[in-house]
């Protein structure tokens, strides 16, 4: 039997074993089902024992800017798994440390191999003992922005590693891609970035900007943030003063927020429509406790 044939047979055996494991434990496979194209590809590569290719794919995925914390946690878990299977425990440990940096309360799925779980728990314990403080981002979105001038956004960033940088991603609501700018350090951990004035043009109608803040390490990997690409924060940009409202702005402003609704409500309260609307307009707020359970 040639060396090539032996290698092929070994790989086939590995694939059979991995597939057998996944088939026997659907929960094991499904628990990892945080989906993205890259994560699914890595999952497939690990299932095929293609650990080197999986690591290369993970490297590319980690460098992307739109990873959520959950995606990062999953990628670092996959990275640690691949390194461990390759016998590189030090690198696996490093991956798990990054995992906890991204998702401090991350846990493994039941059915994870004891070898993997053992290292995972060791790292978790070490991280807790060293009391590594996760990077934190505190940010209060501004209530509103004025058109025609740049919008300063501040964030309080705690435990920021030396090589890390904070970046602001922003876009006009309804558009697809984000622009970005770096935060500049002020004092006391405060940082400031500005959305340039040309992104806030004066318009007859109000419009919205979406943005998120991301702290990434030297390799561009997200450590912490406020909002993310999928769930950005929102700031409304006021309509230019003295301009008539644009009919196209109707959907951006709720009817009960308009001054003329209040005027009509005050003057025409006897109308049938107003009879329905008035209780809401009077803002008689109520608190309704809602308990949500996932049906078992």
């Amino acid at each position: 039997m040639s060396a090539h044939t032996k290698l092929g047979a070994s790989r086939a055996l590995v694939v059979i074993l991995v597939l057998g494991l996944l088939a026997a434990a659907p929960a094991f496979a499904a628990r990892r089902a945080v989906h993205s194209r890259e994560i699914d590809k890595v999952r497939q590569l690990i299932a095929e024992a293609e650990f080197d290719r999986a690591l290369a794919e993970i490297g590319r995925a980690l460098a992307q800017q739109h990873n959520t914390d959950l995606m990062l946690g999953t990628l670092y878990e996959q990275q640690g798994t691949a390194y461990l299977y390759l016998g590189n425990e030090d690198k696996a440990r490093e991956s798990f440390e990054r995992l906890f940096q991204a998702v401090p309360d991350f846990d493994l799925a039941p059915g994870t191999s004891p070898k993997l779980r053992s290292l995972f728990e060791q790292v978790k314990s070490d991280v807790a003992r060293r009391m590594l403080q996760p990077v934190t981002v505190a940010h209060q979105p501004p209530p509103r922005a004025e058109p025609g001038s740049g919008l300063d956004l501040e964030a309080q960033i705690g435990s920021m590693p030396e090589a890390a940088r904070a970046r602001l991603y922003y876009r006009r609501a309804g558009t697809e891609s984000y622009s970005s700018t770096f935060f500049a350090e002020l004092e006391g951990g405060r940082q400031r970035a500005q959305i340039p004035a040309f992104e806030l043009p004066e318009q007859a109608s109000e419009y919205a900007l979406e943005y998120y803040i991301e702290v990434a390490d030297g390799a561009g990997r997200r450590l912490a943030g406020a909002g993310n690409a999928l769930e950005p924060l929102l700031v409304k940009v006021a309509a230019a003063r003295g301009q008539a409202p644009d009919p196209s702005s109707v959907s951006e402003e709720r009817w009960y927020q308009r001054w003329w609704v209040w005027a009509i409500a005050g003057g025409v309260a006897a109308g049938a429509g107003a009879a329905i609307a008035v209780p809401m307009l009077l803002d008689q707020q109520a608190t309704l406790p809602v308990t949500v359970r996932v049906q078992q």
Partner: peptide, 11 residues
Amino acid sequence: GVTFDISVPAG
């Protein structure tokens, strides 16, 4: 389950 205190207009 998780309980949320939802603030809505009385109605």
